[in-house]
Amino acid sequence: MAKKVQGYIEIDKEKCKGCELCVVACPKDIIRMSKDVNGKGYHYAEFFNPEPCVGCADCAVVCPDGVITVYRARIEV
């Protein structure tokens, strides 16, 4: 069994203002803007494909509103 670094992010969609900076910052292109809107009427960021995520936290660092929480672990695959 091989080990791999796996990341995962959680986005607080109600606090997201839809600026899209995380989409640009993500080196793996696995964040996109949702077609739905949140309570404030913004298209919120959506984490649609966890598999390539390495938990680099670039998205969370550039998020002006601090809505992204990043997890990282070594898992067996």
């Binding site: 796996q6 995962y8 966890p50 660092v61 601090g66 990043v70 997890y71 990282r72 672990a73 067996e76």
Partner: peptide, 24 residues
């Protein structure tokens, strides 16, 4: 083992694996 999105979430999202969150 096939890694699905739900499986990854279950394995990775734990308090001890948190690497970045908004500061209190």
């Amino acid at each position: 083992m096939e890694l699905t999105a739900d499986k990854i979430k279950e394995l990775v999202v734990k308090p001890e694996n948190k690497v970045y969150a908004k500061t209190p």
